[in-house]
Nucleic acid binder design. Structure first.
Ligand SMILES: [Zn+2]
Ligand SMILES: [Zn+2]
Ligand SMILES: [Zn+2]
Ligand SMILES: [Zn+2]
Lengths: 132, 132
DNA sequence: ACTGGATATGTAATGATATTACGTATCGTG
DNA sequence: CACGATACGTAATATCATTACATATCCAGT
């Protein structure tokens, strides 16, 4: 599925777990799901998550303290801003980018001498399916 | 219209602590600073923070698991989206609103049948002062 | 004033998330 | 092979947040 030749065994296991999940998973949930694969300690998960996040294959949802697999790997080019719509009812997460949002925020930063390193945009709410 | 209930003693103490702080404080840091005022348990802080957040006097920074006093209580009408620029060097936080960002995000939501409840925008980076 | 419900508080215990410390193993390159 | 960089294993600890239950206080309706 998400087999990445350059990933280690632990990293692949964590990524596969996230890719097959219905929604965001906490590090400890991932740990529990990988007990049978030899995972014993949180650090094994966090280290894999750190690397996967660095590679852009996984995103951390700050408002949930949880992680999701990226829907489509994107580059780490400057100005890349990703937003997430998180349904509080079913847990589904939608990832999207909006160039105008990115430009407005970087515009504010430029006007204030602020140098962005990472931007978090998370919309909590109710998805279309759950609104019926 | 803007009926502002009087704050309780605990709520006032927590708000004062945040208002006089240099930057965001964690709940446990607030607790430590209020030991002399009789605070003994985390829940005393969390309950006050919940109420203050509900009143719009305090914001939670999701990417820090910390809290700041609001700089502009009056700008928080319904639907207002607030953004934060957080300096990772000195900890200073700048709060601002951008109507176009809010419109783009609500536009995306409308187009996808998503009903936003709360939106988090946090820019981590380096402030002007720390960039010199 | 009495009373009953809503709200606020005090305290202990527990749960949930994340990092530090230290040692070993594996990999890639000269 | 030597050796530095990277990954891994494990335990302990640190940090953040909630549950449970008992008391206290406030306040409107009587
Ligand atoms: Zn992505
Ligand atoms: Zn949903
Ligand atoms: Zn504010
Ligand atoms: Zn700074």
């Amino acid at each position: 599925m998400n087999a990445q030749p350059d990933l280690t065994r632990n990293q692949s296991l964590v990524l596969d777990t996230l890719s097959h999940a219905d929604g965001p998973l906490s590090a400890y949930t991932i740990l529990d799901r990988l007990r049978d694969d030899g995972f014993r300690a949180p650090l094994q998960v966090y280290r894999a998550l750190d690397k996967l996040t660095e590679l852009g294959l996984v995103h951390r949802l700050e408002s949930l303290n949880a992680f999701v697999a990226c829907i489509q790997p994107h580059s780490h080019e400057a100005g890349t801003v990703v937003a997430f719509a998180i349904c509080e009812t079913c847990g589904q997460v939608d990832e999207f980018s909006d160039e105008q949002v990115a430009e407005r925020l970087s515009g504010w930063a430029a006007g204030h001498g602020f140098h962005p390193h990472k931007t978090t945009i998370e919309i909590r709410g109710t998805c279309a399916t759950c609104s019926h």
